[in-house]
Design a protein around this nucleic acid. Sequence first.
DNA 1: GCCAACGTTGGC
DNA 2: GCCAACGTTGGC
Length: 134
Amino acid sequence: MKYWLIKSEPEAYSWDDLENEIIGRWDGVRNYQARNNLKTMQKGDLCLFYHSVTGKEIVGIAEVVNEYYADTTAEKGDWVCIDVKTYQKLQKPVTLSQIKSEEKLNQMALLKQSRLSVSPITKDEFDCIISMGQ
DNA sequence: GCCAACGTTGGC
DNA sequence: GCCAACGTTGGC
């Protein structure tokens, strides 16, 4: 089981949108590093769902329900998407400033590579954020 | 709204 | 293959 952080501007696609859709398709990724991460994701992996720009906070946990397949929104090139569903909403969102002020989390790609939309995180980082969100 | 960081494109 | 120009993302 691996852990990930996925992010989206809530104006484009929010946690509530995923909740309404039940199963959401995570497509539109056009970055090779993020794509390679998508290809590594396995069914049952858990993803922290981060709202960028508006909110700047982790709002919940999503679960991978289908592994990667061709992204039909791509007109050319080898791009992929996955399917996710909501797993558990955090009782309290964990904000970017909280993450920045927690020493255990200062290696996260969210801080070092703010533009990477799909990034791996460690179990320790995952557990730390979950406990901060309770 | 500004700007830094990063990725992509295209001229040479 | 290098690098300047440009576009996008996302924090502030």
